[in-house]
């Protein structure tokens, strides 16, 4: 049992436990705190996987931005009795069974005969900020050429050069629209039924 496995075991357990906490906690503020731990756990997982930049982005954007937004939302809306809106026990049961079934299905897929074949990852870390930025800016992939794996035997899907400038632009515009829309929706106005 190497250090990596041990680290993963600790981090994965913590992540899973805090995710369960999000589900189980009645108090919305507590759920937010559990979510915080989950997100940090996922970020640690990214770091374990060698994707330092994505991990950092996860920490900054998610933990630092999105979660703060969520907490603000909680504070702006949750007052006294509304803080915990409990579902009925029957709903708990149905939801739990369903979630367990889904987890079972996914786990079976991940471990079963249809699982992706084990591939030895190439040495060295994942492409860092530099190659990612180049990919976003439209430069063809700088990583070593390789064929797509995990496809049925005997078939080879040749890689074609990819560039993400257009998706990047689309996402930028999307973000802009979203921000304007959010500002519009949330702007202070008189209550309609006041």
């Amino acid at each position: 049992m190497s250090l990596a496995v041990a680290l993963f075991a600790v981090v994965a357990l913590a992540t899973g436990a805090s995710a369960l906490g999000v589900v189980l906690s009645r108090n919305i503020v507590r759920a937010a705190v559990w979510l915080l731990f989950t997100l940090i756990g996922v970020a640690l997982n990214y770091l374990l996987l060698g994707a330092e930049f994505v991990g950092a982005a996860q920490l900054i954007v998610y933990v630092g931005g999105t979660l703060v937004l969520v907490v603000f939302g909680v504070m702006l809306t949750a007052q006294g009795p509304l803080r915990s809106l409990a579902a009925r026990p029957a709903e708990w049961a149905v939801g739990g069974v369903r979630a367990a079934a889904l987890f079972g299905l996914l786990a079976a897929l991940a471990l079963g005969p249809h699982a992706p074949p084990a591939v030895t990852p190439p040495d060295g870390p994942l492409p860092g900020v530099g190659p990612l930025g180049l990919a976003f800016l439209g430069f063809p992939d700088a990583s070593p050429a390789a064929n797509v794996t995990g496809v049925p035997d005997g078939k080879v899907f040749p890689r074609t050069p990819v560039a993400y400038l257009l998706p990047f632009e689309v996402v930028s515009v999307h973000l802009l629209v979203v921000l304007i829309g959010a500002a519009y929706l949330a702007r202070a106005k008189r209550r309609a039924k006041a």
Partner: peptide, 10 residues
């Protein structure tokens, strides 16, 4: 994948 499946189920 297992961890991800668990998060998804949650």
């Amino acid at each position: 994948l297992l961890l991800s499946a668990f998060l998804f189920a949650c």
